[in-house]
Amino acid sequence: MSNFNISKKVVATIVLLSFFSCFLQSKLEHDAIEFSIPSMVFEKENFATNKRIELGKKLFFDPIFSIDSSMSCASCHIPEFAFSDTQKFSPGVFGREGVRNTPSLMNVGFHPYYLREGSVPTIEMQALIPIQEKNEFAHNIVEISKKIQKIESYVDLSEQAYNRKPDHYVITRALGVFQRTLISNSSKFDLYLKEKVKFTKQEKKGMRLFFGKAACNNCHSGFNFTNYKLTNNGLYEDYKDEGRMRATKDSNDLSVFKTPSLKNIAITGPYMHDGSFDDLEQVIIHYNSGGKNHLNKDKLIKPLGLNKAEMQSLISFLNTLTDIKLNKNLERQ
């Protein structure tokens, strides 16, 4: 029975989340609640337990995943930076250069599909990709399972967590459970929603621009600041990356990418699918310009007419999306 001891932490998180989700509703009914964080839905049969999270976390930080045991998931998804990388492209094994900027993993369990092209349906399946990609781990999950099965501590933990030895099922599921617990709901913005902190004038001005004149929330909407839609944002006229078309072979999907979450955006630079912008100012200058003409550019991308002061306010607001408890949580874990 101890295998399925649901962690107190998990219960606490879920209770906390449901509390937050009730919060905005108060007694009145809104026209659609936008900012409440829903509770995390775990995969059927793969609900969170203490042991499963522990196993997933151990695996996440273990360089055993790469062919030369040089890097772990955390090498590119660095916890201090909301599980993203500070480089344009994260190098894989043997210094092989990656092709896309590493996305943040905070709130990743809420995504409806994975990868920048949205081609992978679950976070559990997503684990197979970096393992196999030649410019990431260049390894194979069958081989990794064999290596892990030789380590007693892993075998014990796996038996406790899943009642079976650490095979491809256990590895992908445990990593999935761990990543689903990476929830970000303690940013200054979240506290503002609960009216626990006040925004500065500039932050408030930036927020009004975000939801008003700049209408960033046309795509970056909801509690996770993304609608997860696959669109082209007019970054180039001619992209090196074919985006979603790589998976669908449909020219309507040429250079179309998933809208990323803006939670923790201040610490997840560089930005865009190719990390071509170093800071948020460049990002906002891009959107303010209305972007380049691309066949598939979303019609919502158009000149915004923001002045310098307004751009600064917008950045101030974006800075409030950074989780202030992020590092504390990491220490606790």
Binding site: D31, A32, E34, F199, K204, M207, R208, F211, G212
Partner: peptide, 15 residues
């Protein structure tokens, strides 16, 4: 004329 009207907290409504 705003897609979603913004309330006093600076947050938009849903409709």
């Amino acid at each position: 004329t705003n897609r979603f009207s913004i309330g006093i907290m600076g947050l938009p409504g849903g409709r």
